[in-house]
Computed example of a mutant assay.
Amino acid sequence: MRLLATPDRARQIEAAHGRQRALEPAEAHAIGLILPQGAVHQGVALRPGNLPDVELADFAPAPGAVLLMLDQVTDPQNVGAILRSAAAFGAAGLILQDRHAPKLSGALAKAAAGAIEHVPVARVVNLSRALDDLARAGWRSVGLAGEADLSLATALDGGPTVLVLGSEGEGLRRLVGERCEALASIPMPGGFESLNVSAAAAIALYEASRPR
């Protein structure tokens, strides 16, 4: 871990929390030089340690447990917002593909507002095979698809569930959708055709958190 702060900020930090061994006083322009381009700081920058590696086997099925899986969702702002919702609703974790998914840094970390420290994230090579592995471990997968006749509320049974969401443009890929035990839609009586994927994830997490 590395903590940089301007002299004024350093004094404020130490006054509030005591002496910090990792704290390095630095001028504002020096802090800006080590941050990604376009990043905004207020006189403080923290480089945390690496996040722990997470495997599918680390997700133990339990009644009411919910995992999220994202298929080809590449916008870091969306993934960050989904992580924030996952933390708010107590999701057990998030599963991303090795490719076609953003890194847990930069804009994603900012949008997540600290949630990447609270929600375990596993990366897998193949989402279809991951769904097979999770099914053998006792998880039931429900894919969100706007064209599905089954409503999400009906599809959920209160057991350990993987909610699978696809990209806003193409939705779930065929092979991923075929591996889901059920496909369900979020009823939209207003007649609008679709939701932003992060909004859909928040609604799905809320629905899954309701007692059954």
Rank of each mutant, 00 (worst) to 15 (best):
A184M: 06
A92Y: 04
F89C: 02
P160K: 00
I186Y: 00
A155C: 03
G93M: 10
L150A: 12
N78Q: 14
P189A: 14
E178W: 03
S141I: 01
A81F: 03
G93I: 07
Q97S: 13
E193H: 11
R123V: 07
A109Q: 14
G80T: 03
L134R: 08
A130Q: 00
L144D: 01
A155L: 06
I82S: 03
D157Y: 10
L183T: 10
S141P: 00
L144G: 00
L183G: 14
E117N: 12
V124W: 08
V119E: 09
E170S: 15
E170N: 14
L156R: 07
R140G: 12
H118A: 12
C180I: 05
A122M: 01
G158P: 01
E117W: 12
D133A: 10
D157S: 13
L144M: 00
A148E: 05
D133R: 08
L108K: 08
A153G: 12
L144A: 00
E193I: 10
E178K: 14
A91H: 11
L195R: 06
G106I: 05
L131F: 03
L104C: 08
V162D: 04
S194F: 02
L144Y: 00
A130N: 02
S185F: 00
E181W: 03
V125A: 14
A101L: 02
V121P: 06
F192T: 08
E193A: 07
Q97L: 02
V164G: 01
A112E: 04
D132G: 04
A155M: 01
T161A: 07
A86Q: 05
I82Y: 09
L144I: 01
G166N: 09
I186P: 00
E181H: 14
P189F: 11
G138A: 04
E117Q: 14
G169E: 15
V79L: 09
S141V: 02
N78F: 14
H100Y: 13
D149H: 08
L131W: 02
P102F: 06
R179F: 01
H100W: 09
V164S: 05
R174T: 11
K110M: 15
A148S: 07
A115S: 11
A135P: 01
E147D: 15
R129S: 14
A153L: 03
L131E: 07
G190H: 11
Q77P: 05
L172N: 07
D149K: 11
D132C: 02
A87M: 04
A109S: 13
D157I: 10
E147N: 11
R129C: 04
A88K: 12
L183M: 10
G190A: 11
V176C: 07
A145D: 09
A112P: 03
L94I: 04
A92M: 10
